[in-house]
Simulated scan of single mutants.
Amino acid sequence: MPVRKSAAEVEQRRQEALRLVTGAGEVRIDQLAHRLGVSVMTAHRDLDDLQSRNLLQKRRGVAAAFSTVQRESSLRLREHVNAEFKAAIAEPLLDLVAPGDTVLIDCGSTLFPFVRALSEVEQLQVVTNSLRVSYLLSESATVTLLGDRVHPEFESCAGPEVLRQLDRFRVDVAFLTATCVHNGGLSHPVREYAENKEGFVAAAGRSILAVDGGKFGRTATYAHGDLSGYQTLITDDAVSRKELRAAEKCGVEVRTTVPARA
């Protein structure tokens, strides 16, 4: 008699299905079932669940990822992608923070596990444009939310007022994410966010960039500098050798974390 999987094991399998579909763009459901070692009926149930959470699209015989624009315009879609990488970098990022620091935290789901771990650090002053970050740290740190136009799809604020408010702070270390990295250059599909990211780097004593390998080799409409503005880049083992060489030429310290995968 087959052993019934726990809820945690089922969710882990569904996250693996999401990773496979996101990486390929589109996968036949029978092939996906084979990759996961489950029946086609089980694969359909998993995909129905992921579709109900707006994490992918299920079509006739195939599972399809959302387009780049759709993925980058919805925090809900991004939050569950590359979860292993996001969990793996929490501790390495935490090692870069000292009690009493003034920390600037960019919006982006990549940083959420790290933000949760920050509650352990005493006497932090946190500056952020992220509604989610401000909520997660509101009881454990002194938090200032930088405000301008609210972008619900990113759960954050962006615009010139964010940078005007930031002028009042002396930031020890900034933690940022990136949507696209190509040959050392950085870009974002929304102009206000590209401008804010440039301003965040300029305001900080040290700037740390956390980006999973899937963001490399891609470009978006609005450039916001390159990796030379950062002291440390934390990524994973999915980055191509070409992109790593371009990063190293920018003078940034590259730290590669290998996520625990099922």
Score class of each variant (00 low, 15 high):
2 P>C: 00
4 R>M: 08
7 A>G: 00
10 V>K: 15
14 R>G: 09
17 A>I: 05
17 A>V: 04
18 L>W: 11
20 L>W: 10
21 V>R: 00
32 L>Y: 03
37 G>I: 06
42 T>R: 14
42 T>K: 09
43 A>G: 04
49 D>Q: 13
51 Q>V: 04
52 S>T: 13
52 S>G: 15
53 R>W: 12
53 R>L: 15
55 L>F: 01
58 K>C: 11
62 V>G: 00
66 F>L: 14
67 S>V: 03
67 S>R: 05
70 Q>N: 07
73 S>H: 14
75 L>S: 14
76 R>C: 00
77 L>Y: 10
82 N>D: 13
85 F>W: 09
91 E>G: 03
92 P>H: 12
96 L>Q: 13
96 L>H: 06
97 V>I: 10
97 V>Y: 07
101 D>F: 11
103 V>Q: 06
104 L>S: 09
107 C>Y: 07
107 C>T: 04
110 T>D: 11
111 L>N: 05
121 V>M: 01
132 R>C: 06
133 V>G: 00
135 Y>K: 11
135 Y>W: 13
137 L>H: 08
141 A>S: 15
144 T>W: 12
144 T>L: 03
147 G>I: 14
151 H>D: 10
153 E>F: 12
154 F>A: 15
156 S>V: 02
158 A>F: 08
159 G>H: 09
161 E>Y: 13
163 L>D: 09
164 R>Y: 02
165 Q>W: 05
167 D>G: 04
169 F>V: 10
172 D>Q: 13
173 V>A: 14
178 A>N: 03
178 A>V: 00
179 T>D: 10
183 N>T: 01
184 G>S: 01
186 L>E: 05
186 L>T: 04
191 R>T: 01
193 Y>I: 08
201 V>F: 11
209 L>F: 11
210 A>I: 02
212 D>K: 11
217 G>F: 08
218 R>E: 07
224 H>R: 02
229 G>C: 03
231 Q>I: 00
232 T>G: 01
236 D>H: 12
245 R>W: 12
247 A>R: 07
250 C>N: 14
250 C>S: 14
251 G>F: 13
251 G>Q: 14
253 E>F: 09
255 R>Y: 02
256 T>D: 11
260 A>S: 12
262 A>H: 07
